[in-house]
Amino acid sequence: MPAKTKTSTIKKAAVELPQEEVSTREMILRRSLELINAKGMVDFRIDTLATSLGLSPGNITYHFSRKEDICVALWEQYLEEYGKVVRSLTTLLDMKQLYLLNRININLNYKYRGVVVFRSADLGAMKRDQEAGRVNEDEHFAIARRVMSLLKLNGYLDKDTTKEIIEGTHIYHYIMMRWCINFAYQAYTPEEVESKLDYLALMSLHALYPTLSQKGRDEFAEILAKVSTGNLLGDRPVK
């Protein structure tokens, strides 16, 4: 589970601006996300952004001196929202709850897709910040581990599963959560991806399958049946 809980306090303060009016900063971030989602980070340019907002590039660079700073700010926003999801991890955890958590996370990944898919796409950027990457990673792992231990506690893991396999499985779960959206953009047409989000959440949950007890597999089968028949519509308003 990619639990990006680490948020810088400075950025947080900047995000909590007065809400009534959309600040220029906020406006820049929103439009940037749209542009990055449509074209990717590499082709994203501050001048295009400025033109589309009817601002001068100087207006933008006053808030963000480089496009990378915009990307970082969006990532921090994403982490902030993600932190809220992770906080709902409790000792009541079962397969369905975990599926729902994954689903919220996948939807969030989709909302921030341009930034999320790029996060580990450039060697230079990764190299410059390997230390922070590692710290971030350790935190995610701590949470993915907690998921495994809660599942075990509640009888969802097969008794014969070795420690090693549990360790491998939580890494697997994490990688699926992080990169299944990239997979979706390779396996499906771009237009299809949005309709596949429930399936992607199932795909990340499936990473745990080799370690599940019969009880876990039964619940998984139940979720699978609902997802594959498109029968997961509880969140649509009832008419």
């Binding site: 790029f118 450039d122 953009y185 396996a187």
Partner: peptide, 21 residues
């Protein structure tokens, strides 16, 4: 890593990727 991770590249190469998968 770039082709697997930049939205622009993913979209441009979508057809190639789908064939590969």
């Amino acid at each position: 890593t770039y082709y697997f991770g930049d939205m622009g590249a993913l979209l441009r190469e979508n057809e190639t990727f789908r064939r590969q998968i």
